[in-house]
Nucleic acid binder design. Structure first.
Length: 400
DNA sequence: TCTGGGGTCCTAGGACCC
DNA sequence: TCTGGGGTCCTAGGACCC
């Protein structure tokens, strides 16, 4: 999808259309640009740039908060349109998908005609623009769609992959970021064509497993890693996490613990939604100088309960925090799915069932009344209250 | 410039097992 | 008594993607 977040915001507020728009938050907040409109990009604003920097480059831009629920809603609409063209669809992210069109020629016609129809249908069903790359490999289709932006269609015919890729900067290859680009430049490799001319053994020796894949990519192959999987083969999540950056660094234990409790609740909730139980629980801690540590612990019996997650996280925090040091960010990350059923016999069926019921009830309350309706974090705060718009002075309030 | 949040994959070292 | 080899699991960190 083209400038997806910005385009969705324009649907909700048509007055934004054509203007420089930055999605991500207010320019005075800590944060980065999630998406910038094409008008804002003309000023040098782009994704991942600090909001404060974007403001300096383009003070007249309209800064809006992101709305994940809206993007998720439109992502589902996009998926429905795609599904009507091929049963083999894989959403690669909230605004990107791969379709396996093998065998649909009789239904949709030759590649360009099928793409044109899809393009038109996407616009009429979602009112959003997209770009389409057509190729015999996922990698080339992706790079093709990037080259087709905005609002275009590009077909790279089978056999023409290497010729299409050769003049492009190595950075255009998915997986080549800032660091790999720098390393390649140091070797005098700037274009994908330079990469394709190199010896595979040299790349492997220099970059390991990744080098092998890189050699294949330079020729347009889905060699190694995620690209090498069948479209539609993706399964559930492998990890779940939530993190929070404070607008001002803090060393206040009450504030830190209530934030950790809230993050544990968000993670626990997602585990229950997916019916997953986690064995490995990880704390992330970033200090004011941006130095970051992660500390993990694997537990014997997998859990999806907020209180059990919090007990582990609290322990990890207590043993690893440089006491008194200012904290910038906290994160809670879980992985390593295990059997939830084991928990029953160990915990006692009644107690376990009561907890499950309580959690299910709390999740329903949150659906109806919002995230803060039921909270371990609120209870933990005690006399300390976070400053919110309802309570700007951060004064102690009534317990909920 | 002053650096979000949610993910995936890879590397590397160490414990531990047979 | 001077140090094998294969495998798995765990932990920490980092590159990268949207």
């Amino acid at each position: 999808m083209d400038a997806f977040f910005v385009s969705v915001e324009e649907l909700y507020d048509p007055s934004l259309a054509g203007k420089p728009v930055v999605v991500g938050g207010r320019p005075t907040e800590r944060g980065v640009v999630s998406a910038a409109s094409y008008a804002a990009r003309k000023f040098g604003v782009h994704s991942a740039m600090p909001l404060r920097t974007a403001y300096k480059l383009c003070p007249q831009a309209i800064f809006v908060d992101g709305h994940p629920e809206r993007y998720s809603e439109y992502s589902h609409k996009v998926y429905d349109v795609l599904l009507s063209f091929s049963p083999l669809v894989e959403m690669a992210s909230i605004d990107e998908a791969y379709l396996d069109m093998t065998g649909t020629e009789r239904l949709h016609g030759p590649p360009l005609r099928a793409a044109d129809r899809l393009h038109a249908r996407m616009k009429s069903e979602t009112r959003l623009n997209c770009s389409i790359g057509i190729a015999a490999s996922r990698l080339v289709a992706k790079i093709g769609s990037d080259q087709a932006k905005p609002n275009g269609v590009l077909w790279v015919m089978a056999g023409r992959e290497a010729a299409f890729l050769a003049p492009l900067d190595v950075r255009k290859v998915p997986g080549v970021g800032k660091v790999t680009e720098r390393n390649l430049h140091a070797l005098g490799i700037r274009k994908v064509g330079d990469l394709a001319r190199l010896d595979e053994a040299f790349l492997e020796q220099r970059f390991g497993k990744w080098g092998m894949a890189l050699a294949g990519k330079s020729r347009g192959q889905d060699a190694g890693g995620w690209y090498d999987t069948e479209i539609g083969a993706a399964e559930g999540p492998k990890s779940i996490s939530h993190e929070h950056t404070f607008n001002e660094d803090t060393a206040e234990v009450a504030q830190i613990e209530s934030t950790l409790a809230r993050l544990c609740e968000l993670v626990g909730r997602r585990l229950r939604e997916h019916g997953l139980f986690a064995r490995t629980i990880q704390l992330k801690l970033r200090y004011e100088d941006f130095s970051t540590i992660t500390r993990a612990h694997s537990v014997e019996r997998a859990t999806q309960l907020d209180t059990e997650l919090f007990a582990e996280i609290r322990e990890l925090f207590k043993t690893n925090w440089k006491a008194g040091a200012q904290v910038r960010l906290l994160g809670v990350h879980v992985s390593g799915w295990g059997e939830g059923a084991e928990q029953m016999s160990l915990m006692g069926e009644d107690r376990h069932q009561r907890w499950q019921n309580a959690m299910a009830a709390a999740d329903r309350m949150r659906d109806r009344f919002g995230e803060s309706a039921v909270s371990l974090a609120a209870g933990l705060r005690g006399n300390f209250r976070e400053r919110t718009h309802e309570n700007p002075a951060g004064l102690p309030g009534k317990k909920k």
